[in-house]
Every structure is written in C-alpha cells, then in structure tokens.
C-alpha cells in the first residue's frame, strides 16, 4: 500500500486572486488530467445549454407571443447556461485527479459531490480505453476499468492523453494475475 492513500492534508489556504483557473485542487500526490479536458467539459456544457437556449428562443418568439412573461425563459436559460459554460468546467477539472499506485488506482472527482474511488488492480476484470468525438477533437481519452462488483463496477477516468491512457492500461494489465476468488 502506498502512503498516497492516507487521508488528504488539511485544505491549505489557496491564493484567492490571480490564480490559474485550472490550478488543480487535489489531495497531495494526485495527478491532474490533461488541461484540454476542461474544454471537453465546456463543449459538453455547450452541447447541453445551446439547444436549450435555442428552444427557449423559439418558444418565446412563437408560443408566448403577447404574453406578459415573454422573454423570461430566454433570459433565465441564457444566464444559467452562460454561467454553466463559463464557471462549471474548470471547477470540475480542478477536482479531477488520479493516482496510479503500485497496487491500486485512485480517482478523485466531483465538484459538488466528491467521489474518491480506489480500485485494487487485483480486482480489475477488463479495461477499456475509449475516445468520443469530443475526445478526438481535443486529444483526450478515457480509461474505463471494470470490476466484478455490481455497484461501482465501472470506474471511469476521463481526460487522459491517449498515450497515457494506453500506458496506464498496460501497467494495470501487467499486474492482473489469476486469483480465483
């Protein structure tokens, strides 16, 4: 067991102003993922909010003609969507980190809901390296580790460079040996 798996140190004071928006905020020893992953997240937010915004525009212009609250939907969706696109990606990015220990993979993620997952290599059943269209656009890949569990059986680590993902897959694979539980 590596010492990295101990409790994280108490949250040190961060410089509040002029800090890098993508400055990782992770427990000690954890590695951040590729910076371009923040843009994958941003594009995903856009893919959610822009159609909603267009929908709201259409509604306001055609369905709510002459209604007193006309324009409200567009305004709300526009503001919330813009906020989500601008503020959310780096917050998710900052909190996403991983550590490839000797015997286990640890993944920390989540902005509002922190999830800190550990998968011992001996428990891994098979491994995927997946790349979606956005991943290809921005040069990232996801490492997906499958365990035999019914709960959390699929552990995903997004935002790796494809080379790194392949490397990690090979590292994990090399440790998998037969043990019939």
């Amino acid at each position: 067991m590596t010492t990295d798996l101990a409790a994280p140190p108490p949250e040190t004071d961060r410089p509040a102003v002029l800090r890098d928006p993508l400055q990782p905020h992770l427990p000690e020893g954890m590695h951040p993922v590729e910076r371009s992953y923040a843009w994958v997240l941003r594009l995903r937010q856009m893919a959610t909010w822009i159609p909603l915004f267009i929908g709201a525009l259409v509604l306001d212009n055609f369905a709510f003609e002459g209604q007193p609250f006309r324009g409200l939907a567009t305004a709300v969706v526009g503001i919330v969507g813009l906020a989500a696109i601008i503020f959310v990606p780096q917050r998710i990015y900052r909190r996403l980190g991983y550590l490839l220990g000797e015997k286990m993979l640890r993944i920390v993620r989540g902005w509002l809901f922190h999830v800190d997952t550990i998968v011992p290599f001996v428990r891994v059943q098979h491994i995927d390296v997946a790349r979606g269209p956005l991943d290809k656009l921005l040069g990232t890949a996801s490492l997906i580790v499958h365990t035999a569990g019914t709960h959390n059986s699929i552990v995903t680590l997004p935002g790796l460079s494809p080379e790194r993902a392949g490397e990690m897959r090979d590292t994990i694979r090399a440790t998998i040996k037969t043990d019939w539980q």
Binding site: H126, R169, R173
Partner: peptide, 15 residues
C-alpha cells in the same frame, strides 16, 4: 470497436 466513439478494450485471459 466503434466509429465515432472508439473503444479499445483489453480482456486479460486470467479474468
């Protein structure tokens, strides 16, 4: 596998 979403899966024989 996959066209848009490329997926590379390795299944160790031990598993």
């Amino acid at each position: 596998s996959g066209i848009l979403n490329r997926n590379h899966r390795s299944v160790p024989f031990d598993r």
